[in-house]
Amino acid sequence: MAIGNIKAGKLLYHLTRLSNLDSILEHGLVSRKLVKDNDIRFSDVADQEIITKRTELGLDEYIPFHFHPYSSFDVAVKATYVDEEFIYVCISRENAKLNNFKILPRHPLNNEETYQLYEYEEGFETIDWDTMHTLGTEDRYTKSVKMAECLTDLIIPPNVFQSIYVKNEETQKIVEKKLKAKGITINPPYVNIGRWL
């Protein structure tokens, strides 16, 4: 996906370790709070400071998605854990809209003011798409906009995933095998190779 197509994109992106896929296929994609409360095996990619702040704001009750796979969070995580393999679990924006996902037009931890959760359609129109599409050096505001989030407190079962992006054909085969073992044999979800992984 080219950076210029973000607003017109069809997917939402959730970055996670490949090692979390078994747990996700077993329990669905769930919020950090549900992971903790139910002692679900899961390896987090966010640093402890971010986890603490999100918990204080009550955002641990939501699963966060980004509007593209190029956010500074995603880049930082992949740079920090260079020896680990990551995947993107994606759902369709239409599905998010139909299921009343919320939107944060700017990343809540980069803002000095309090954050506001919007209903999907209002939040989508509130996003500063011109800034979202900018390239090059990013100031604090730009980074914050590029990390706008779409959130849900629902459990998302694997058969609702639109796609899972992986880094190469070898991982594609591993993921397809895991899906098949869980009886998920009808597309979607599609298992695609993403050049940004």
Rank of each mutant, 00 (worst) to 15 (best):
K167R: 11
E138F: 04
E61N: 15
K182W: 01
A46L: 15
E138T: 12
Y62R: 02
S31E: 03
E85S: 12
D139C: 08
N168P: 10
N187T: 14
P189S: 01
N110Y: 13
I87G: 06
I184C: 11
R93C: 10
I156E: 02
E56A: 10
K143T: 12
N192L: 15
V166L: 05
R54L: 10
E121S: 09
L57I: 04
S23P: 05
K53Y: 07
S43C: 06
G123A: 09
L21W: 00
W196C: 06
R93I: 06
D139E: 06
F161R: 01
R17Q: 07
E85K: 14
A8F: 05
N95F: 13
L34C: 06
I24P: 10
D74E: 11
Y62S: 02
L154V: 05
P64T: 09
K167D: 08
V75I: 15
E85G: 06
L154W: 06
I184G: 11
G28S: 02
E113T: 12
R32S: 14
S71V: 08
K33Q: 15
E112A: 09
H68L: 08
V89K: 01
E94R: 09
E149F: 07
L98E: 15
C150Y: 00
G28C: 01
R195N: 11
Q162H: 13
Q48R: 14
N192C: 14
E138A: 15
N168G: 10
N38H: 13
T134G: 05
V191R: 01
V166M: 04
S163R: 11
C90I: 02
T52C: 09
N5K: 12
G194V: 02
Y120T: 03
R54N: 01
A79N: 13
K143L: 08
N111W: 04
Q162W: 06
P188K: 09
K143D: 05
H66C: 14
K167L: 06
S92L: 13
I184S: 08
H14F: 03
E61L: 12
V30I: 14
T55N: 13
E113C: 07
K182Y: 00
V175Q: 06
F101G: 07
T114A: 14
P105N: 07
G58Q: 04
I127L: 08
H27Y: 13
K102P: 00
S31M: 09
